[in-house]
Simulated scan of single mutants.
Amino acid sequence: MNEKLNQPNPEHWSDEQLIDHEIASATSEERSIGDAGARVIASQWHGGASSALYSLTSTGAIDLPQVVAEINESWANADTDYNREHLEALGAYVMARESHDPVEGWSKQWLTPPDEPTEQDDFCPACRAHISAPHSVGCPLGEEDPQLLERVEQAVTAKGIAVAHWLEYVGFRNGEELEAAINMFEDHYLGHFESIEAYAADYLIESGLEAQLDQLRQFLPEDMRQHAKWDEAGIAHDFALNTIHSVADDDGHLYLFTK
C-alpha cells in the first residue's frame, strides 16, 4: 500500500492521495474504482479535446477501443509503477462499466476526502466542475485574466448564471469581445424551461399562433377540431436543430438561447 495512506489526513488532499484512497478502498471491497475516481484519473492523462480520455473526463462517455488504446499508450509511457497503478485501475473501470454512454451529472463527479460530503457549493455554477478540478474548457468563470474574470463575475451577479452559459457558448478573447457578448445576452436569452418542447408551447401562445389556430378550428366540423393542433414535438426538434442552443442545469431543465 502506498505510504501516503498511512499518513494523518492532511487539511487538503491532493488528487494523487484521493486516487490512492479510492484504489485502496476498491481493492479492499473487491470492486472497480467508482465514477469519481475514473474521472480524476482520466483528467490527468487525456491528450486534449480530441482524445477519448477527454470525452471520458468531460461527459463520462467511453469510446472503448480508443480509450483502451490511450490508456495502454499512457501506461507504456508512464515513468513510475505508481502512475501505472492508477492507469490500470482506470482500465479495469472502463472494461467493467456496462454503459458507455455519456452520464447525466458527470461533471459533479470528483473524489472528496473520506467523511467529507460533497456540497453544492463545491462546484462551479457554470461548468459544474468540482472546485478541486480545472474548469471545463471555455468556462468563463475559469478565465485566467483577473480583469476579465472580474467582469464576468459582475455580469453573473447582475444577470444570473445564464449569462455565464451564454459566454461559454459564444466565447471571447479580450475585453472588447467580452463586453459585446454581454451586451448580446438579453437579445439571445429565451429563458429557463423544463424542455425545448415546453418552450415551443410557450412560444405558440406568446406569438399568437395558438390563438390563430383556435380561430381556424371554429370552421372545422366539431369532431375534427381535436385533430387540428400544432406539432409541438416537431417544432421543438426543429428549434433544437436550427435555432436554439440549450444548456441543462442539475435538475435537467434548460437555459435556452437563440443561436
Rank of each mutant, 00 (worst) to 15 (best):
H86P: 05
V103D: 00
N72P: 10
D79W: 13
E70V: 14
K108L: 11
V68E: 09
W75P: 07
L90F: 11
K108T: 08
A76T: 14
L87T: 08
T80Q: 07
T80V: 04
G60V: 05
T59M: 10
S74D: 09
E104T: 05
E104P: 02
G105H: 03
D81L: 13
N72Y: 15
L64S: 05
P102I: 03
M95G: 02
A96F: 14
L90D: 05
L87D: 05
L64F: 09
H100A: 06
A76D: 15
D79P: 12
N83L: 11
V103I: 01
R84P: 09
N72C: 15
H86I: 15
K108C: 06
T59H: 04
G105Q: 00
E85C: 11
P65Q: 08
S74E: 13
E104M: 02
W106G: 03
A78R: 08
A61L: 04
A89G: 06
Q66L: 12
S58Q: 06
D63H: 06
P102F: 00
E73S: 13
A78C: 08
D79G: 03
N77T: 13
T59N: 09
T80D: 04
G105I: 12
V67L: 02
E104D: 01
D79V: 12
Q66W: 10
A92T: 15
A89M: 10
A78H: 02
D81S: 06
L90G: 06
W106H: 01
K108N: 06
A96W: 09
N77G: 01
L64E: 02
D63C: 03
G91Q: 12
R84Y: 02
E73F: 09
Y82I: 15
P102C: 01
E88I: 14
Y93M: 05
N77K: 13
P102K: 01
T59W: 13
A92V: 11
W75F: 13
E88Q: 11
V67W: 07
Y82A: 06
L90T: 11
E73C: 14
H86W: 13
T80G: 00
S74M: 08
G91W: 12
V68C: 02
N72A: 14
A92W: 07
A89W: 05
S99V: 09
G91E: 11
T80M: 03
S99W: 09
P65W: 08
M95C: 10
G91T: 09
S107C: 01
D101I: 03
A61T: 06
E88F: 11
E70I: 15
I62K: 00
T80C: 00
A61E: 06
W75L: 14
L87M: 04
E70Y: 15
W106S: 00
E104I: 07
L87R: 03
M95E: 14
S58R: 10
I62V: 02
V94K: 07
M95T: 15
D81W: 03
Q66V: 12
D63I: 06
P102D: 01
G60P: 05
S58C: 13
A69K: 09
S58H: 11
V94W: 04
